[in-house]
Simulated assay, not measured.
Amino acid sequence: MALSLWLSLLGATIVISFTPGAGAINTMNNSMRQGWRASIWGVIGQQIALLIHVVIVAAGVGLLVSSSPLLFAGIRYAGAAYLVYLGIRMMLSKPDVASDGTSTGGTLTRGAMLRRGILVNLLNPKAIVFFLAFTPQFIRTDQPLLPQYLIYIGTIVAVDVLVMFFFFAGTARSFQRFTTTVRGAKLLNIVFGVLFILVAAMMLLIH
């Protein structure tokens, strides 16, 4: 991949990663509930989902999803339903205030954060359509594909991890003071629950 093309990829990826979405909300929530360092497991899960999306597009399945209204709608509704489920569960959960202020509604295991990170990003058919349009801009079919895809996905994952972990998760640490009281923890549960539901509504309403 030419340096100029890679710099374009890098710039586009930075802008996209900083765009708030379900992944950013999930990362911030994990950081406040489980702690900044532990939130990396949710970020890793989200990167696994990105890898799956790129593989789906590279394999040509993305074209099938984007061209099949029924399949696209099925994945879209499943993704929205999962986010609504997370939102409602969060709003109804009982705050569990720890002395170090890292828990707001029950401790999640690393595996649970990993699985939720995967599902939050994976159940979004718009991401498949996005990569379907985005990937060809940086992959040249007249050149060896494997090195290009490795650079492509490596850049996307590296940037997204840095932005999610150091920006979104890092920023969330400044709000951890709210987790030291039951009232503050409950407020955060409601706020993040509403945010998950709003993202779900956007998935359904914005075409």
Rank of each mutant, 00 (worst) to 15 (best):
L10K: 01
I156A: 01
L198F: 05
R177E: 11
V129Y: 09
S93K: 12
I156T: 06
G79C: 08
A22C: 10
L188P: 01
F138C: 04
M202L: 15
R33I: 14
G111I: 10
S39W: 01
L205S: 04
V55K: 12
I40K: 02
I56V: 13
L119C: 05
V163R: 02
I52K: 06
L3P: 01
V97N: 01
R110Q: 12
L9C: 05
G60F: 02
L198R: 03
L204K: 00
G117M: 02
V57N: 07
T171H: 11
I75H: 01
F196G: 03
N121G: 14
M90Q: 14
M203C: 03
A158C: 05
F192S: 02
A22Y: 04
V182T: 13
L63E: 15
F196S: 04
F175D: 07
G42M: 02
Y152I: 07
A127L: 10
R33Q: 14
L71V: 09
G23Q: 02
L63K: 15
M32V: 08
Y82K: 11
F165D: 08
Q46E: 05
G184W: 03
V182S: 15
L114D: 04
F165S: 07
F130W: 12
L10Q: 06
F167Y: 11
T135Y: 13
L108Q: 05
D100C: 07
K186F: 04
A172C: 08
L146V: 14
V163C: 04
V199D: 00
S4E: 12
V120N: 04
A49Q: 05
S103K: 14
A201D: 08
G62Y: 03
S67G: 11
V55G: 14
D96M: 09
